Amino acid sequence: MAEGTAVKGAGILPSQAIRALIESGEIGSPHPGLTEQVQPASLDLRLGPLAYRVRASFLPGPGRKVAERIDELAMHEIDLRRGAVLETGCVYIVPLQERLALNGRIAGMANPKSSTGRLNVFTRLIVDEAGAFDMVPAGYQGPLYAEIAPNAFPILVREGARLNQLRLRRGSPNVGDRALEKLHEEVGLLGDEAAAQIRRGLVFTVDLQATEGAPVGYRAKSHTGVIDLDRIGHYDPRDFWEALPGSRRGDLVLDPDEFYILASRESVRIPPAYAAEMIPYDTQIGEFRVHYAGFFDPGFGWKAERAGTRAVLEVRSHEVPFVLEHGQAVGRLVYERLAAEPDQLYGAGIGSSYHSQGLTLSKHFRSWNGA
Rank of each mutant, 00 (worst) to 15 (best):
A6C: 10
V7D: 02
G11N: 03
S15P: 07
S15D: 14
L21M: 15
I22H: 04
E26S: 10
I27E: 06
G28N: 05
S42P: 05
L43F: 01
R46M: 10
A51Y: 00
S57T: 15
G61C: 11
G63Q: 09
A74L: 10
E77G: 01
R82C: 02
G83M: 09
E87V: 01
T88G: 05
V91A: 03
Y92A: 01
L102H: 00
G104T: 12
A110G: 10
K113H: 07
S114G: 15
E129W: 01
A130D: 10
A130P: 05
Y140Q: 05
G142E: 05
L144H: 05
A149C: 11
L166C: 11
G171D: 09
N174C: 13
V175D: 09
K182D: 15
L183S: 05
G191W: 06
I198Y: 01
R199G: 08
A210Y: 07
A210V: 13
T211G: 10
V216T: 11
H223N: 15
D230F: 02
R238Y: 08
D239T: 09
E242H: 03
D251W: 03
L252N: 03
I261K: 02
I261V: 12
R265I: 15
S267R: 09
Y274Q: 04
M278S: 12
P280W: 04
E287T: 13
R289L: 11
P298L: 02
G299A: 04
R306W: 03
R316I: 04
R332V: 08
R332F: 05
L333I: 08
V334D: 08
I350Q: 03
Y354P: 08
Y354N: 11
T360M: 11
T360G: 03
S367N: 08
W368S: 13
W368E: 14
A371G: 09
